[in-house]
């Protein structure tokens, strides 16, 4: 990246992030987005963090991870425990709780990355799955955080501003990491591990980095979730939750940050729109899912997509990897 381009990019980023924030605030204030949908917007922010962070391991590092909900759970419970136990000023306590959530998940990310150094592909997917289930099983049996009954009375710290800010930080940090030498090395592991090693890349270091980075933001998302819902139950953080996030990543395109953001918006809003269908909602969701995967790989749809892409000019750098 040339330095001038970089400055231009920085300006564009800043203006669009600020504009997005102001726009949402205006829509909230004017009542165009009602309280119910304000909650959905907040969920979108949390899902953006979850999706973009999972993209780090599944999209950029190229490892199928089925335990993202486990990191989220760890972050949620740790941060909730922190802010329930210590009664500090919210201004100090919440950022600290977010950090605690992120760091706790990061520690677990470190543990999960250890088998990742030896195993790849489906085996690693099973390990991450098993890990997520272990976290949930342990939480179920920890009476100090409510066990199966759930953990209630968590202070309501999460506001739109906080969620938006964290989502922005996650997206920018991920993009920035990917556009650095560390990010390139992570992608090289996905592309060809043996060639990466032969080119001097310590693949273990970068697998480790990707897992820890990914877990950190999942933990932050969990912390936001905890202080928004004010009630946690182990039953939320199931394999289904991990899969829900993975679906968002795959739909947005592996290794595309912009795609992850767009697909988290769509897949958070879509179930809400389908809510009127009540019983048919999940059925419709599964059909849409299968159709999307099928069409993604059908040649006619591919050709049509290429045309649309052509109309909007060439994709940005990050999309080269998708």
């Amino acid at each position: 990246m040339k330095k001038n381009d970089f400055k231009k990019q920085l300006l564009i980023d800043f203006v669009s992030i600020a504009a997005g924030y102001v726009l949402m605030r205006v829509l909230f204030a004017a009542g165009i987005i009602n309280t119910y949908w304000q909650g959905i917007v907040l969920n979108i922010c949390i899902n953006v963090i979850l999706t973009v962070s999972l993209n780090m391991t599944s999209g950029f590092l190229g490892e199928l991870a089925l335990g993202h909900a486990g990191f989220m759970a760890a972050g949620a419970y740790a941060s909730a425990f922190f802010s329930k136990t210590l009664k500090l000023l919210p201004v100090i306590e919440f950022p600290a709780a977010l950090l605690i959530g992120g760091l706790t998940a990061m520690l677990l990310g470190f543990i999960v990355s250890l088998p990742a150094l030896r195993l790849r592909g489906d085996y690693l997917a099973i390990i991450t799955l098993a890990f997520g289930e272990i976290v949930r099983n342990l939480l179920k049996n920890m009476d100090i955080v409510g066990g199966t009954k759930g953990y209630s009375g968590i202070p309501a710290y999460t506001t739109f501003t906080w969620a938006y800010l964290m989502a922005v930080i996650c997206v920018l940090a991920t993009r920035s990491l990917i556009n650095s030498r560390q990010g390139r090395s992570i992608i090289s592991v996905r592309e060809d591990e043996i060639a990466a090693e032969a080119s001097g890349v310590n693949t273990n270091t970068y697998k480790f980095l990707a897992f820890v980075f990914s877990a950190f933001f999942a933990g932050v998302a969990g912390a936001l979730y905890a202080h928004y819902m004010r009630f946690l139950q182990p039953g939320v953080f199931t394999l289904d939750k991990s899969i829900e996030i993975l679906v968002m990543v795959v739909l947005g395109g592996m290794g595309s940050i912009r795609g992850s953001v767009i697909s988290s918006v769509i897949l958070t809003v879509l179930p809400e729109l389908l809510r009127s269908m009540s019983d048919y909602r999940m059925l419709a969701y599964s059909v849409v899912l299968i159709m999307m995967m099928l069409s993604k790989h059908s040649e006619t749809v591919q050709a049509a997509l290429e045309k649309v892409k052509g109309m909007f000019g060439r994709g940005r750098k990050e999309e080269v990897h998708s």
Partner: peptide
């Protein structure tokens, strides 16, 4: 298609 696309389809 990639393994992951297949997996998502199976989940669907």
């Amino acid at each position: 298609a990639s393994r992951i696309s297949l997996l998502i389809t199976a989940i669907g």
